[in-house]
Design a protein around this nucleic acid. Sequence first.
DNA 1: TTGTAGGCGTTATCAG
DNA 2: CTGATAACGCCTACAA
Lengths: 321, 321
Amino acid sequence: MTNIKDLAQMAGVSVATVSRVINHHPYVSEEKRQAVLEAIESSNYQQNINAVHLSKGKTRLLGVVLPFSDHPYFALLLKGIANEALAHNYKLVLFQTSYMESREIEALQMLRQKQIDALIFCSRSCDWSTIEEYLSFGPIVFCENMTGKPVSSTYVNHYDVFFKALNLLYHQGHMQIGYCIGRRQGTNSRGRALAYTDFLNQYDLPYRLDYIIDECLYFEDGAKVVKQIKQMSSPPTALLVTSDQVAAGIMTCCQKEGIEIPDDLALIGFDNQPIAGMMDITTIEIPHLEIGKNLFLQALNGWEKAHQEVSATFIERSTTN
Amino acid sequence: MTNIKDLAQMAGVSVATVSRVINHHPYVSEEKRQAVLEAIESSNYQQNINAVHLSKGKTRLLGVVLPFSDHPYFALLLKGIANEALAHNYKLVLFQTSYMESREIEALQMLRQKQIDALIFCSRSCDWSTIEEYLSFGPIVFCENMTGKPVSSTYVNHYDVFFKALNLLYHQGHMQIGYCIGRRQGTNSRGRALAYTDFLNQYDLPYRLDYIIDECLYFEDGAKVVKQIKQMSSPPTALLVTSDQVAAGIMTCCQKEGIEIPDDLALIGFDNQPIAGMMDITTIEIPHLEIGKNLFLQALNGWEKAHQEVSATFIERSTTN
DNA sequence: TTGTAGGCGTTATCAG
DNA sequence: CTGATAACGCCTACAA
């Protein structure tokens, strides 16, 4: 492997000059520049990026923490981040955590050790106190409302969105509304849970534990939901489903089981994924790509803390009355 | 940021000794070890990983090239790789290419610049001649049959699998068989195309261009397929669909359109994804996780070239006769 | 415009 | 067992 020292010798200049032409610095005579360029060409020179990293203290590597990449929500977030990273010549290091705290800590460690310049948490399991220990090692940004904390965040106000959706169903005549969610933990899920209880209180509706169905992530989870509903003596007449995939699965199963949609069961999905369009599912669109883009930019400008709320759009289709 | 020089001073030893205890080398007196450990503790020392990389010439970073991560096939491959990477304390750098050659080349460049130790191509667009230029910079492994080339590969014999599936359909009485595929390019797709034409020739069946439907990747693409089929004067009676997601989409649309499955249209999916189980779709199981694991191991043991064929399993369910 | 030399933080070799 | 010291390859004052 030839290095800049070799190049310097070949071109009859100093290493500094070689470095200058490599990094497109001004103040290099055209003559020497050509000599260096020629040396690079003929020697098949390749910069050792690790040396650059060591010297500069930066890697142009950005960490992305997410539980799994095969769920459309995270896959789209990832795509949004990746697009912007590409534009800024950054690469992504992926941390698939399965919600395991230990893997999140691995990511934080890499930040601490300077192997990545910044870190994006698309979702997290660890406490804020854990995060706090690593704040000084580089920018850490979040896809959940972190207002008040000394970090940046881009998020959807899930409380609001949920509350509005519930109200909408209520005004369509539904008194028995349930919801399906991926997991109960997490800021976003808790925001939704709060909206749900607040909604129930507002209209003096009973809180029914079995109206909340969790671990709903994929299409096939729709089967589980329908099965559970069928066993209820007084099933919900409407369901808020936090993923269009699951909503589609529910719809498919309902057809088999003879449950009419929306008459027997109204459905509101989330994300406005293509599958929702195809199956004509009422849904709430979340601008994943935009969120991903913003997360990246916040990570890039780590010093200026900001909290950006993005809005969701209601898209009415045939699964609501 | 304190470094090992500082530690050495604090502990009253040399940097070499500090390095030894950090790297758990033998031959360090317990006394000095303790001194160093204390210094590390009190100084909140953190190793600068970039310096280690430069010194060792390795990064414990592995590149993974795939077109998109939101497709179950690639997401599962990725998961398999990630699992094994975790076990070996490697991290993954993701290259989402959208089949763009330029991004594949970025990945190859990172290998050349030693920012990653090895590279896995889950799918590729670039020519072998391009790959060839980078062979000397580190292990490159493929998820397609690369027998004869000086690299490692783990793959499914798609020709065989396709041929067998077609024969099965034929012996169930189907003479008009079509197939849906993600894209026409790529070794795997070409293997399937070849199996298809060989099959047709074997039974002297006509080659109908419109029986081959490409760009079928997601559930929602099923709508497109059904629409196309409905327009044909003589539609296929059976369809080989290279993704269960798409097969499920087709099935869903067929129900709407009153097309009976399997009587009007038999369906064989691919991958044995959960959705296939839920919808009782006949499918061909591919051991993605195992393939991912093997790809990782091949990348790790880059010097020994190997080509491993993994087998697929036929799972008969209700979408075939 | 150019070159020298020191620094980035570790690892590893080689004497002792 | 331990410590100098030379790599690793590049960047960048600083001096010329």
